Amino acid sequence: MSTVLVVDDEPQILRALSINLRARGYEVVTAGDGGEALQLAAAALPDVVILDLGLPDLDGVEVIAGLRGWASVPILVLSGRSDSADKVDALDAGADDYVTKPFGMDELMARLRAMLRRNSPADSTPVVTFGDAVVDLAATRVTVRGEEVRLTPTEWHLLEVLVRHPGKLISQRQLLVEVWGPGYETAHGNLRLYIAQLRRKLEPEPSRPRYVRTEPGMGYRFEP
């Protein structure tokens, strides 16, 4: 049974999430502010955290930073803030995904399941398959319909970061720092160019990508 820590200062949301999570077999721990959330996270060691950004004591981004100081637990941000800058700040601080209020319970539960799957040891497989493409992470080799596809070192590194985190929204800044290194945080043109090149080589319809998806204003998500 997975344990979920739900952090929100709205009692009705805490109650609704608790009821729905318990009905689906999850153990639930709740907190109404950031300080309590950090204490409970250390005590309960949850498998996943659902975190509201608008807390009365600490900003949600501060809570994410506090958790990331010692834990790799998946964090799903739940917030009424629709500004993409807030979402990017949360992702850059270490959040794994973001759902905006008001939200559909089915969507939130699907995101939660995906995060738990990504965090399980079974997801360390070195071969990732999507559509007609097969990515062998151990052999650094990509094939499409059985034919090897040649990627540049930068294309490979970008693809590797994406496919190692299926379903996770990765901010542009995260990708730029991971692939190009510090100092390239604002080189968005580089990122768009290489994403387009990957799509041309791997997507059935590059102009209508199914697997390397854009989240406007935020980043990219690999959907196998």
Rank of each mutant, 00 (worst) to 15 (best):
A65F: 00
G69K: 12
F130C: 12
L175S: 09
L17T: 00
D106A: 14
G60K: 01
V99G: 01
L108G: 08
L45Y: 06
V73C: 09
S171A: 14
V4C: 05
L176Y: 05
M1R: 13
T30D: 08
E205W: 07
D89F: 05
E155M: 10
P224C: 13
D136E: 11
W156V: 07
Q39D: 15
P46D: 09
V28E: 03
V73D: 04
G32I: 02
R210T: 12
P153V: 03
L55E: 14
R200K: 12
A44G: 06
L40Q: 15
T186R: 11
P209I: 02
H165C: 03
G80M: 07
W180A: 14
A85E: 13
R111P: 04
A71C: 11
I64C: 06
L158H: 03
T152V: 02
E203W: 05
Q174D: 10
T214S: 15
W70Q: 14
W70P: 00
N190E: 01
E155W: 04
D96M: 10
I170L: 15
R200I: 01
L108N: 12
T125F: 00
P204G: 06
P46M: 12
D52R: 04
P121H: 09
E107Y: 13
R199C: 09
G60A: 01
L202D: 05
R145M: 08
P121S: 06
V179P: 09
Y211M: 09
D83Y: 06
G104P: 11
D136Y: 04
P153Y: 06
V4T: 03
V142P: 00
V163W: 00
T100V: 15
V4R: 00
K101C: 00
V128F: 01
F130A: 13
T143L: 07
L21H: 08
A93H: 05
A44P: 00
S120F: 04
S84I: 08
I195W: 05
E148N: 08
M218V: 12
L91S: 11
R145C: 05
F130Y: 03
R113C: 02
L17S: 08
G167C: 09
V135Q: 07
L40D: 12
G35D: 13
I50S: 07
P153R: 05
A196D: 15
L45R: 15
S171N: 10
V142E: 01
S171V: 02
R208H: 10
V142G: 03
A90R: 03
R173A: 10
P166S: 10
L55Q: 14
V135C: 08
A196F: 08
D47H: 14
H165I: 02
V99K: 05
G183V: 09
V29R: 14
V99L: 11
R192I: 13
Y220C: 12
D97A: 11
V4E: 00
L116W: 05
R221I: 10
I195G: 13
D106K: 15
G167Q: 07
V61Q: 06
L162I: 08
V134I: 15
P153G: 05
Y194A: 02
T143R: 02
A37T: 11
R111A: 01
A65R: 15
A31C: 06
W156G: 01
S72I: 02
H188K: 10
Y184W: 12
G66D: 11
A138N: 14
Q172S: 10
A37I: 04
E36R: 15
P182M: 02
E36W: 00
I64D: 12
L40P: 02
F222V: 13
